[in-house]
């Protein structure tokens, strides 16, 4: 088709996203920022006012100083951040990749639905963290046991989401494909995988947070590096500013990870109106 129709299509898509400087967009950031600032001021003043000892509860400035030293003036936090990121992201990619592939393969199988799926749903409720020590025994205290832990934490929720997403495909669309004699593989790749996109991204968003939990927990159990290790070792000498700095870093990681997954979702699911309207 001509270029002009192409631009029409593109602008039609853009119109639904609010502009970058719209009131809604600014206020959605501004209002929670006000609340956060108020909380931080209360924190700083009340720690000073009640004379709370630093090893119990550090002041805001103590924590900021620790973050400054850790990231700007000295960079002592970087190796730990890198280690945690490496295990969390590698495990996330492995676990999520496996969940999507295995989920897609098994969503179509009747035998799997009858024999295996109920067990997996049941196992969903067991705390995966309880298995972490076992992974240490099997894989040692290095990076691989952490990656395995993260991958396992990520696998199950996303696996269930993938299977459900594929199963939720509008039967009217499947009927349409069948009426045109579409082979199973075409229906799968042209219809079901797209239909499952929202569910898969919802899973990817939950599991990015799980990935950091998994990494930290396995570092608690035995590690010589990582933000989890840092919290653990700071605990031994009541160095609460370091603990806070590590926790703040973890919160930032989870937020950035979640925002990134949402951003990718919007880019991928361009046809989904509900996604497009979440422009902020």
């Amino acid at each position: 088709m001509s270029d002009s129709t192409n631009t029409v299509a593109l602008t039609a898509h853009n119109q639904t996203t609010p502009s970058f400087y719209s009131f809604e967009r600014i206020s959605s950031v501004l209002y929670p920022t006000i609340t956060l600032a108020a909380l931080l001021i209360i924190w700083q003043t009340s720690v000073a006012y009640f004379n709370v000892p630093q090893y119990i509860f550090p002041s805001l400035t103590d924590v900021l100083r620790e973050l400054w030293v850790g990231f700007v003036d000295g960079g002592t936090l970087y190796p730990h951040l890198a280690y945690t990121l490496k295990s969390a992201l590698t495990g996330y990619l492995l676990g999520c990749g496996a969940a999507i592939v295995v989920g897609a393969l098994l969503a179509e199988s009747r035998a799997f639905e009858k024999f295996v799926y109920p067990l997996i749903i049941g196992l969903q409720s067991t705390p995966k963290i309880a298995i972490a020590p076992l992974l240490m025994v099997w894989l040692g205290y290095g990076l691989s046991s952490k990656i395995a832990m993260v991958a396992m934490m990520c696998f199950f929720p996303l696996f269930v989401n993938t299977v459900q997403g594929i199963r939720q495909t509008d039967p009217a669309l499947l009927n349409m494909m069948r009426a045109f004699s579409a082979p199973t593989w075409l229906t799968f790749f042209r219809v079901k995988m797209f239909a499952a996109t929202s569910n898969i991204f919802a899973g990817l968003q939950i599991t990015i947070v799980f990935a950091f939990i998994g990494a930290i927990v396995s570092e608690f159990l035995g590690s010589s590096e990582g933000l989890g290790y840092l919290i653990q070792s700071a605990m031994a000498n009541f160095n609460t500013p370091v603990m806070f700095a590590a926790i703040v870093t973890l919160i930032a990681l989870s937020l950035i990870g979640t925002a990134f997954v949402q951003w990718v979702h919007r880019k991928v699911a361009f046809w989904d109106r509900t996604m497009r309207n979440k422009g902020r």
């Binding site: 669309l173 494909m177 045109f180 579409a182 075409l186 797209f194 361009f270 046809w271």
Partner: peptide
């Protein structure tokens, strides 16, 4: 199919066969 263009939608029977 909302994720396909009009032209791609029209091609569904062609792809299917």
């Amino acid at each position: 199919l909302p994720w396909l263009t009009v032209l791609e939608n029209i091609f569904i029977p062609i792809d299917a066969m």
